[in-house]
């Protein structure tokens, strides 16, 4: 029970810290510290530290997004827009590998993990689905074309028109490969959309 309760609290504080992105570092640390102390005081005053009591406590404290919005308002900051780390990650993860093989995707991974806009679970999703982003299906597609080496057959002495083709005829196995490539393309794109939606933003509620 104690472990679960501690996890609730630490998750809350982590979320709060994330939502406070953009505030001066000192202000941010100060707020997290103070609220952390508040929680400690409240817990000390509880008769029994069960999950329900902690959840009530955190509810009374309020949503981290709301607290961060209030902080931005009090310090005269504009509501947070999406940060460069997050934009960078969302671009480099799917297509970074295409722009700059391997390294590009790697940059995306670094940005993803360095940013605090995503939970660890979301970061794992972004890393494992799909390594290499769109580079992999692109590379497979290119490799497939080159290895088959097929093309049209031309005998210039007979006629300038192509007289045939030595490309393998389309059959069932070809369709399977196409499906595989389509999936390899879709997965990174869907993952990118998923990450974009899971990103913690500042609320626009203050406006």
């Amino acid at each position: 029970m104690a472990a679960k309760v501690d996890k609730l609290v630490s998750d809350y504080l982590k979320r709060l810290n994330g939502e406070l992105r953009g505030l001066p570092r000192a202000r941010r640390r100060e707020l997290v510290d103070e609220i952390s102390e508040h929680i400690a005081e409240a817990r000390a005053g509880l008769e029994s530290e069960n999950e329900a009591a902690i959840r009530t406590l955190l509810d009374r404290l309020g949503d981290p997004e709301e607290i961060a919005a209030e902080a931005r308002e009090r310090f005269g900051l504009a509501p947070r827009k999406v940060g460069w780390k997050e934009v960078g990650a969302l671009i480099m993860l799917p297509i970074g590998g295409v722009i700059l093989p391997v390294l590009g995707w790697f940059i995306g991974i670094v940005l993803l993990w360095v940013s605090d806009a995503w939970s660890t679970r979301d970061k794992l999703v972004g890393t494992l689905l799909f390594p290499g982003g769109l580079l992999l299906p692109l590379a497979l597609g290119v490799m497939a074309e080159e290895s088959s080496g097929c093309g049209t057959i031309v005998n210039p002495q007979l006629s300038p028109q192509p007289i045939g083709s030595n490309c393998p005829p389309a059959d069932g196995t070809g369709a399977w490969e196409v499906a595989l490539v389509v999936m390899l393309v879709l997965v990174p794109l869907v993952t990118t959309v998923y990450l974009a939606r899971r990103m913690r933003r500042a609320s626009s509620a203050t406006a």
């Binding site: 100060e30 103070e34 609220i35 508040h38 404290l61 607290i67 209030e70 902080a71 009090r74």
Partner: peptide
């Protein structure tokens, strides 16, 4: 409405 919003004010 939410207790946590007092802390930015105090700050």
């Amino acid at each position: 409405t939410s207790e946590g919003t007092i802390y930015p004010l105090l700050s």
